[in-house]
């Protein structure tokens, strides 16, 4: 076998070139759509109508794509931010629905993850498998159950109908557990030797050492909550409660020219969050990926 492999092995420089070319192509598939989108968000209405009539669903005309706008303008952003009160309400709704959920996930998830990662108790493995099952099940399966509870509690058609079930999502617990498991045992033993109790070990050693995992879990939750589509569509009848993620799907045709700008504004918070916390996110994902 190794002989065959050795024969295929080409020159070192050539290999590096092919690798870079392949990676650049992959990155291009990411950047091209983004550039198209940013460029479209700076186009005036006439240019948008001329270029992207069919994608906007208004009429039929050949797409005339462009990586730079011919007549760059902030018109669409101004229209969106100053003359579309509905957009603001939805942006605010998204914040009201997502941030309390994240806070709840932190309060509930961190201790649970610590227990899974650090304590020995009967039935631990089974319980953790149950959490994994909850995590894997698609929203639609738990939708019926959730709907029944929310209905019973009279919470349907309110912000709480998205916040409460979200708090007990199993996904952050899973990610944080993996990351707490990666905290070196020696660190904790040193703390115990110095006379720390279980509580002190958790607050003073565990949480700081596991913080990349916590940040990662909450960032991923934020991204998911910010994009939520199924939950608000199912639980919120009242349009004044709708989050930003429903603005674009529901955009009316005479507002279509601000669609691209709205897309840009909508993706800003998660993108900035990611670029800002990239290092921690990578560390957190790494911790979830490797068990000691």
């Amino acid at each position: 076998m190794p002989d065959v492999f050795r024969k295929i092995k080409g020159s070192k420089r050539g290999n590096a070139c092919i690798r870079t070319a392949f990676l650049s192509f992959a990155c291009l598939s990411v950047w091209l759509p983004l550039i198209l989108m940013v460029s479209a968000s700076f186009m005036p209405k006439d240019e948008l109508l001329w270029r992207y009539l069919s994608p906007m669903g208004i009429g039929m005309a050949p797409v005339r794509a462009s990586l730079i706008p011919s007549y760059p303008t902030m018109e669409a952003f101004a229209e969106l931010l100053f003359r579309s009160p509905g957009f603001f309400v939805m942006f605010w709704n998204s914040c009201i629905q997502v941030f309390p959920m994240l806070f709840g996930q932190f309060l509930v998830g961190v201790p649970a993850a610590w227990a899974f990662a650090r304590f020995e108790f009967p039935g631990k493995k089974g319980l953790f498998l149950f959490y994994i099952l909850l995590m894997v099940l698609p929203f639609q399966v738990t939708q019926v159950s959730n709907y029944l509870v929310l209905d019973r509690l009279g919470l349907l058609n309110s912000h709480l109908s998205l916040i409460l079930p979200g708090i007990w999502s199993a996904f952050p617990v899973f990610i944080m557990t993996r990351s707490f498991e990666a905290v070196p045992k020696t660190l904790l033993e040193a703390a115990y030797l110095d006379g720390a109790g279980e509580g002190q070990a958790f607050f003073l050693v565990g949480i700081p050492a596991g913080s990349p995992g916590i940040v990662t879990a909450l960032t991923l939750s934020f991204i998911d909550g910010w994009n939520a589509l199924e939950q608000p569509m199912a639980y919120l009848k009242d349009r004044s409660l709708w989050p930003l993620s429903l603005y674009l799907p529901d955009i009316v045709q005479d507002k279509a020219s601000v669609a691209f700008a709205a897309g840009i504004v909508m993706m800003m918070p998660p993108v900035l969050l990611y670029l800002n916390g990239e290092g921690e996110l990578e560390q957190g994902v790494a911790a979830s990926g490797v068990k000691e």
Partner: peptide, 11 residues
């Protein structure tokens, strides 16, 4: 991963 589906669907 971080780009909302609703935004990228336009492209």
């Amino acid at each position: 991963m971080v780009i909302p589906a609703a935004a990228v669907v336009l492209v």
